[in-house]
C-alpha cells in the first residue's frame, strides 16, 4: 500500500548539512503492523512525519495506494491526511481548553460530515478507547494515559487507512501502557495498517515487522514468527536495548 524509495531528508543546521533520514527505502503492505525502533535522535520521528505527509523529504519517491503523493499541493495534502491518515503525535497535541469530545471531533470538522454524524462517530471511537465517560471533560485535567487514549481516538475518528503512532506508550505508567497496547492489539486484529515508533520492547513485540533505524538509515529488519519471537530478515536480530547500546553517544 505504501512505498518509500531512496527517501532522504537533509537539514541545514547552521552551516552543517545533516542527513537525518538517509536513503530509506521501505514498503508497507495493507493490514501490516510495522514497528520502528532505534536510538534517540536516529530519525524515527522524522521518518514517521514523512510517512504522515507532515514533512517533505528532500529526495526520494513516496507512493501511497499507487499514487505519488510528494507533488501534491498543500490543500490536496491536507485532504489526503484528513481522509487516509490517523496520526498519534509524540506529545499528545490535545487542545487543552477543548473537551475530550471536541478534541476527537477536530479532524471531522474538515471532512464532509454532518454535525450529528460527527458527534456520533467521535463518541464511537471514544468508546473504543474506553474514554466515553469522560467526553465532557476538558483535556487539560486528564492523566497522561487518558490523554494518550484520547489522542488515539482522534487518530481513529476519520477511519484512516494508515495509522501512525509516535511513541504511544512513552512516558506512561505500566497500567496506562497496557491499556494503550490493548487498543493497538485490537486495531491489529481489525487488520489496520499501523506504523508505530517505539522505544519499548514490549510495545514492539506486538508488531508484525520490526525495523531498526540508526543514524537515519535502516540498520536491520525482522519479522515476527508465530511464537512471537522476531526472525531476522536482512541484517540480524537486534533488540531495542541492543540498538540503544549501539547508538553513537
Amino acid at each position: 500500500m505504501i512505498s518509500l524509495s531512496h527517501v532522504t531528508k537533509t537539514i541545514a543546521d547552521g552551516r552543517l548539512k545533516q542527513r537525518i533520514v538517509d536513503d530509506v527505502s521501505l514498503s508497507i503492505d495493507e493490514g501490516e503492523f510495522l514497528a520502528i525502533v532505534g536510538p534517540s535522535g536516529s530519525g524515527k520521528s522524522t521518518l514517521l512525519n514523512i510517512l504522515g505527509l507532515l514533512d517533505k523529504p528532500t529526495q526520494g519517491e513516496y507512493q501511497f495506494g499507487g499514487e505519488s503523493v510528494l507533488g501534491l499541493s498543500g490543500g490536496r495534502l491536507a485532504t489526503f491526511r484528513n481522509r487516509r491518515i490517523g496520526f498519534v503525535f509524540q506529545s499528545f497535541m490535545l487542545m487543552p481548553r477543548m473537551t475530550v469530545l471536541q478534541n476527537v471531533e477536530l479532524p471531522l470538522l474538515y471532512a464532509p460530515i454532518g454535525r450529528r454524524a460527527r458527534r456520533d462517530r467521535a463518541r464511537e471511537v471514544l468508546d473504543q478507547v474506553g474514554m466515553l465517560t469522560k467526553q465532557k471533560r476538558t483535556s487539560l485535567h486528564l492523566s497522561g494515559g487518558e490523554k494518550q487514549r484520547v489522542a488515539i481516538a482522534r487518530a481513529l475518528v476519520n477511519n484512516p487507512k494508515l495509522i501512525l503512532a509516535d511513541e504511544p506508550t512513552g512516558n506512561l505508567d505500566e497500567e496506562s501502557k497496557r491499556a494503550v497496547l490493548d487498543i493497538f492489539l485490537r486495531l491489529r486484529q481489525q487488520n489496520r495498517t499501523i506504523v508505530m515508533v517505539t522505544h519499548d520492547a514490549e510495545a514492539a513485540r506486538i508488531a508484525d515487522r520490526y525495523l531498526t533505524i540508526r543514524g537515519g538509515r535502516i540498520a536491520s529488519e525482522a519479522i515476527r514468527s508465530d511464537e512471537g519471537a522476531r526472525v531476522p530478515v536482512a541484517v540480524g536480530i537486534e533488540t531495542d536495548e541492543e540498538a540503544r547500546e549501539g547508538a553513537p553517544s
Binding site: G52, L54, G74, F89, M93, M95, P107, Y110, N158
Partner: peptide, 16 residues
C-alpha cells in the same frame, strides 16, 4: 501556533 499546526495536520486547509 500549536493549534493552527494541529488543525492543519488533521486536515484543515488554508482557507479554513
Amino acid at each position: 501556533t500549536r493549534e493552527i499546526g494541529l488543525r492543519k495536520a488533521v486536515g484543515a486547509k488554508s482557507y479554513h
